[in-house]
């Protein structure tokens, strides 16, 4: 009986630990790949924007992110801006990320915009 109560507790601990690892991987991925255009705070004002013809999206704005479904966000990360009729300047990252990593990035974006 004691054993049975320890296992669920261990499972919960393990899943908390695993989700922390996934969150930090998503954050590392966001920094490494997204910061260059979307900026260190995600406000769309990255180090590259000065000579860009189209402004990168502000990920901290609930207004500009709220209109996008999770499926849209997944698609635009994987296949690039053209896949959702947006700018070619947003490249496809399907060659870089696994689907799981893209799902984690979508979750990370939702935290940045604090929107659904």
């Amino acid at each position: 009986m004691k054993k049975n109560s320890i296992f669920p507790a261990l499972l919960i601990l393990l899943s908390v630990f695993a989700s922390a690892v996934w969150a930090s991987e998503a954050e590392d991925n966001y920094k490494n790949f997204c910061w260059q255009c979307h900026g260190m705070t995600g406000n769309g004002m990255g180090v590259n924007v000065q000579d860009m013809s189209v402004q990168p999206r502000d990920h901290t704005s609930a207004k500009s992110m709220g209109g996008r479904s999770d499926a849209d966000l997944f698609k635009v990360i994987k296949e690039g801006g053209l896949a959702i009729d947006k700018s070619v300047l947003m490249p496809p990252w399907g060659g870089t990320f696994s689907d799981e990593e893209i799902h984690d990035l979508v979750t990370y974006l939702r935290k940045l915009c604090q929107c659904r």
Partner: peptide, 16 residues
């Protein structure tokens, strides 16, 4: 190399 370690927030945009 690598850009992540050499940028800082600026007034309008991130700067080198």
């Amino acid at each position: 190399y690598h850009y992540v370690q050499h940028i800082k927030p600026g007034k309008k945009r991130d700067m080198v």
